[in-house]
Deep mutational scan, measured.
Amino acid sequence: MDETGKELVLALYDYQEKSPREVTMKKGDILTLLNSTNKDWWKVEVNDRQGFVPAAYVKKL
């Protein structure tokens, strides 16, 4: 969790967005987890953008 109590995830792999609903991340990025109710796609925030990334590409910290 960060200082505001939000849950964080670590990008395990690079991911290039394939639609406007997704976000690009690089391996090693720390992202804010917004929603993990879907087992396949998690909603995150990175670089002031919100979108989805494959759940298998990130790990909760």
Results as ranks from 00 to 15, higher is better:
Glu17Leu: 07
Asn38Leu: 08
Lys39His: 11
Lys18Trp: 04
Asp40Cys: 13
Val23Asn: 03
Glu17Phe: 05
Lys59Val: 15
Asp48Lys: 10
Tyr15Thr: 00
Trp42Phe: 07
Trp41Ile: 03
Lys27Ser: 07
Leu31Gln: 00
Asp2Glu: 13
Asp29Thr: 08
Lys60Gln: 08
Met25Val: 08
Leu12Trp: 04
Arg21Lys: 11
Glu17Lys: 12
Glu45His: 06
Leu8Glu: 07
Lys26Met: 09
Gln50His: 09
Tyr13Gly: 05
Leu12Asp: 03
Arg49Trp: 04
Leu12Tyr: 04
Lys18Thr: 12
Lys59Trp: 08
Trp42Leu: 04
Arg49Thr: 06
Gln16Asp: 14
Pro20Thr: 09
Asp40His: 14
Asp29Phe: 05
Asp14Pro: 05
Tyr13His: 11
Asn47Ser: 10
Lys60Pro: 10
Ser36Glu: 14
Ile30Pro: 01
Pro20Ser: 12
Leu33Asp: 00
Val53Cys: 03
Gly51Phe: 09
Val46Ser: 15
Val58Thr: 04
Val44Thr: 01
Val53Lys: 00
Gln16Cys: 11
Leu12Arg: 04
Phe52Leu: 08
Leu31His: 03
Gly5Tyr: 12
Asn47Ile: 11
Tyr57Pro: 02
Val53Asp: 01
Gly51Ile: 04
Val23Tyr: 03
Lys39Gln: 11
Ser36Pro: 05
Pro20Phe: 08
Ala11Asp: 00
Ala11Gln: 00
Thr37Gly: 09
Tyr13Glu: 10
Asp14Lys: 03
Val46Trp: 08
Leu34His: 05
Leu12Pro: 00
Lys6Met: 09
Ala56Arg: 14
Thr32Ala: 10
Leu31Val: 06
Lys43Val: 14
Lys60Arg: 13
Trp42Ser: 02
Glu22Phe: 06
Leu12Lys: 04
Leu34Ala: 03
Asn47Val: 10
Gln16Ser: 11
Ser19Pro: 04
Asp40Phe: 15
Val23Cys: 09
Glu3Leu: 11
Tyr15Arg: 02
Glu45Lys: 09
Val44Met: 02
Asn38Arg: 07
Leu12Phe: 04
Lys18Cys: 11
Pro20Gln: 10
Gly28Thr: 02
Arg49Lys: 11
Leu8Met: 11
Glu22Val: 04
Asn38His: 11
Asn35Asp: 15
Thr37Ala: 12
Trp41Thr: 02
Asn47Glu: 13
Tyr13Gln: 12
Leu61Trp: 07
Leu34Glu: 02
Asn47Ala: 13
Pro54Lys: 03
Tyr57Ile: 07
Lys6Pro: 14
Val53Pro: 01
Ala11Tyr: 01
Gly28Trp: 06
Leu10Phe: 08
Glu7Trp: 11
Leu10Asn: 03
Tyr13Cys: 15
Ser19Met: 07
Lys60Leu: 14
Gln50Pro: 05
Gln50Tyr: 06
Pro20Arg: 09
Phe52His: 05
Gln16Thr: 14
Asn35Lys: 06
Lys27Val: 07
Ser36His: 08
Lys26Gln: 09
Gln50Val: 15
Ala55Met: 04
Asp48Asn: 13
Tyr13Trp: 11
Leu61Glu: 04
Lys18Glu: 07
Ala11Pro: 01
Leu34Trp: 05
Lys18Met: 11
Ile30Gly: 01
Val46Gln: 15
Tyr57Val: 07
Leu10Glu: 11
Lys39Ser: 11
Thr37Trp: 08
Gly5Trp: 11
Ala56Phe: 08
Glu3Trp: 09
Leu8Ile: 08
Tyr57Gly: 08
Gln16His: 13
Trp41Met: 05
Trp42Gly: 00
Glu45Phe: 06
Phe52Gln: 03
Ser36Gln: 09
Glu7Cys: 15
Arg49Glu: 05
Tyr15Asp: 01
Trp41Arg: 03
Gly51His: 02
Glu3Val: 14
Lys39Phe: 07
Val44Asn: 00
Val9Glu: 00
Lys27Thr: 07
Glu22Trp: 03
Lys59Arg: 12
Ile30Thr: 06
Val46Gly: 15
Val9Trp: 07
Lys39Ala: 12
Val23Ser: 02
Asn47Pro: 11
Met25Glu: 00
Asp2Tyr: 09
Asp2Met: 14
Pro20Met: 09
Glu22Thr: 07
Leu12Cys: 08
Leu34Pro: 01
Thr32Pro: 15
Asn35Trp: 06
Val58Ser: 01
Gly51Val: 04
Thr37Arg: 09
Ala11Ser: 05
Asn38Gln: 08
Pro20His: 09
Val58Glu: 02
Val58Gly: 01
Pro54Trp: 03
Glu7Thr: 15
Asp29Leu: 05
Leu8Trp: 13
Ser19Ile: 04
Val23Phe: 11
Leu34Thr: 04
Asp48His: 12
Leu10Met: 14
Asp40Arg: 11
Thr24Glu: 04
Lys60Trp: 07
Asn47Trp: 09
Tyr13Phe: 11
Glu22Tyr: 05
Gly28Glu: 02
Asn47Lys: 12
Val46Lys: 15
Pro54Tyr: 02
Lys59Glu: 14
Lys26Asp: 04
Gly5Phe: 13
Ser36Gly: 11
Pro54Val: 01
Ala11Leu: 02
Lys18Leu: 09
Lys6Trp: 12
Asp14Arg: 03
Lys6Ser: 09
Glu7Val: 15
Trp41Asp: 01
Val58His: 00
Glu7Arg: 11
Trp41Lys: 02
Val53Ser: 00
Ala56Asp: 11
Ile30Lys: 04
Lys27His: 06
Thr37Asn: 12
Leu61His: 05
Ser19Trp: 05
Leu31Lys: 00
Trp41Tyr: 07
Val44Lys: 00
Gln16Asn: 14
Thr32Arg: 13
Thr37Pro: 03
Ser36Ala: 13
Gly5Leu: 13
Leu12Ile: 11
Asn35Phe: 05
Ile30Leu: 08
Ala56Asn: 13
Ala55Ile: 03
Asp2Phe: 12
Lys39Glu: 11
Gln50Ile: 13
Gly5Val: 15
Ala55Asp: 02
Val53Asn: 00
Gly51Trp: 03
Glu17Arg: 12
Asp14Ser: 08
Leu61Met: 10
Glu17Asp: 05
Leu61Tyr: 08
Gln50Phe: 07
Ser19Val: 04
Gly5Thr: 12
Asn38Trp: 06
Thr4Phe: 12
Lys43Glu: 14
Lys39Leu: 10
Tyr15Ile: 01
Glu22Ser: 05
Val9Arg: 02
Val44Glu: 00
Lys59Asp: 08
Val46His: 15
Phe52Lys: 03
Gly51Ser: 01
Asp2Ala: 12
Leu34Tyr: 03
Met25His: 01
Tyr57Gln: 05
Val46Pro: 00
Leu31Asn: 01
Tyr15Pro: 00
Leu61Lys: 04
Arg49Ala: 07
Thr32Phe: 12
Arg49Met: 07
Val23Thr: 05
Val58Met: 06
Arg49Leu: 07
Glu22Gln: 11
Asp40Met: 12
Asp2Ile: 14
Ala56Thr: 11
Ala56Gln: 11
